[in-house]
Amino acid sequence: MTDIVIHVDADACPVKDEVYKVALRHELAVNVVANSFMRVPQHRLFTRVTVAEGPDIADDWIAERSGPHTIVITSDILLAERCIKVGARVLSPKGKPFTANSIGQAVATRAIMEDLRGMGEQTSGPAAFKPADRSNFLSALEVEIQKLKRGR
C-alpha cells in the first residue's frame, strides 16, 4: 500500500463506486466525507467520515488533511482551490483536473455567476452528468495516481 490517500467530497458525488474500484486495484485509502450518513463498502481501505452539519465543515475536514500525496474528488471550486494550495491533486467527478494554472479562472467564473444570481439573473447550472463523464473520470483518476506513484 502506498501513502496516497483519496478524499471524496461525497455529498452528491456520482463517482464514488468508481473511486472504490480504482482504490482497491491500487490499494489506496479512501475517506468518504459527508455531513450525513453515507453508505460506504466495508473494507479496511475505506473510511466513512461523517462531520457535523454546517457550512464548509466537510470542506474544512478535507482541506485540513490534504497535501502532496492526496487526491481530492470534488466539484466544489473553493474546496478545490484550498486543496491545490496545499499541494493536493484535485479532480471533478467529470474527470476535469483542477490545477494551480486553472483554478483562478474557475474561482473567478464562480464569483461572476454568484453575483449574477444575486442580482436575480437566471443562470443555468452545471451540465448534466453523462456516461462519457464517468469514463473521463476513471481515466483522469488513473493518470493522477500514476503521477503520484512516479513522484511527479
Rank of each mutant, 00 (worst) to 15 (best):
R110E: 14
L116R: 10
R48S: 04
S102Y: 10
G104S: 01
A140E: 01
T74D: 02
M1E: 11
T109Q: 13
D59L: 03
H7N: 04
A58E: 11
P68H: 07
L141N: 11
R134C: 05
A132P: 12
F98T: 02
L148D: 04
L138P: 06
A58W: 04
E53P: 03
E27N: 07
G118K: 07
I6D: 00
D11K: 15
V143W: 10
D3F: 14
I77V: 10
D9W: 13
V51K: 05
N35A: 10
T109K: 03
L24V: 12
Q122N: 12
S75I: 09
A100C: 05
V30Q: 00
E114L: 15
A108G: 15
L28T: 00
V32S: 02
I103H: 04
M1R: 15
E53K: 07
L45E: 01
A108V: 13
L78Q: 11
P14L: 10
L79I: 08
E114C: 12
E27T: 02
I4G: 02
D17P: 09
Q146P: 02
E144D: 09
L91R: 02
S102Q: 04
K96W: 15
L79Q: 04
I4T: 15
L91E: 07
E142T: 09
P41K: 06
E81Y: 09
V33S: 00
D56Y: 10
E18L: 08
A29L: 09
E114T: 12
E121Y: 00
P93A: 02
E144Q: 08
A29C: 07
P93H: 03
F98K: 00
T2M: 10
S92T: 03
Q42A: 07
A100G: 08
S102N: 06
G104I: 03
G95D: 15
G120K: 04
E81W: 11
G87Q: 08
A12Q: 09
V49L: 09
K21T: 12
S36Q: 14
D59F: 04
A108W: 12
K85F: 15
E53F: 05
V15K: 01
R89C: 13
S124K: 05
L141S: 04
T2G: 07
L91N: 08
D11I: 05
P55E: 15
F37T: 11
E27L: 06
G118S: 14
E53S: 10
Y20N: 00
F129I: 01
L141C: 09
K16R: 07
T2V: 10
K96D: 08
S135V: 14
N101D: 07
T109H: 08
Y20L: 11
S75A: 13
C83H: 14
G151L: 15
E53G: 13
G125T: 01
R150W: 11
T50R: 11
D17M: 12
V5N: 06
A23N: 09
I103Y: 12
R39T: 13
F46W: 07
V33A: 00
L79E: 01
L24Q: 11
A140N: 05
R48L: 10
R110G: 11
N31T: 08
R65A: 03
P97L: 00
H7D: 02
K130P: 02
G67C: 06
P68I: 14
P97I: 01
T47K: 11
N31Y: 06
